[in-house]
Amino acid sequence: MTTAPADPIVKPESAPPAEPAAPGPKRSSVARRLVPFGYLSPTIVLIVVLMIVPIVMVISYSFRDNVIVQENSVFAGLANYTDVLTDPDFLAAIKNTGIFITVSMVAHLLLGLGFAMMLNSPLLGGVAKSLFRVVYVLPWLFTIAVIAVIWRLLLDPSGVVNYVLNALGLIDQGVDWLGSPSTALWVVTFANIWSGYPFFMISLLAGLQGIPGELYEAASVDGASPWRKFLHVTLPQLRPVIISMAVLDLIWTSQQFALIWMMTGGGPLNSTEMLSTFTYKLAFSEYEFATASASAVVVLLLTMILAFFYVRQQRER
Score class of each variant (00 low, 15 high):
3 T>Q: 11
3 T>E: 14
4 A>T: 14
10 V>S: 09
15 A>Q: 10
23 P>R: 09
30 V>W: 15
39 Y>W: 14
64 R>Y: 07
70 Q>F: 15
80 N>Q: 14
87 D>R: 06
91 L>Q: 12
97 T>D: 05
98 G>W: 07
99 I>C: 07
101 I>R: 01
102 T>V: 15
112 G>C: 08
115 F>T: 01
117 M>F: 01
122 P>D: 12
127 V>H: 09
135 V>E: 03
138 L>I: 13
138 L>H: 02
139 P>T: 02
140 W>I: 02
141 L>V: 14
148 A>D: 04
156 D>F: 09
162 N>R: 01
165 L>W: 06
167 A>M: 14
169 G>T: 05
174 G>P: 03
174 G>E: 05
177 W>N: 00
177 W>T: 04
179 G>P: 06
183 T>W: 01
187 V>A: 13
201 M>E: 03
205 L>M: 12
206 A>V: 13
216 Y>T: 06
220 S>I: 10
225 S>K: 04
231 L>W: 12
241 V>W: 00
246 A>V: 14
260 I>P: 03
261 W>F: 14
264 T>D: 02
270 N>G: 06
271 S>A: 15
279 T>Y: 07
287 Y>R: 08
294 A>V: 05
294 A>N: 01
294 A>E: 03
296 A>N: 02
306 L>S: 07
307 A>Y: 00
308 F>C: 03
315 R>V: 14
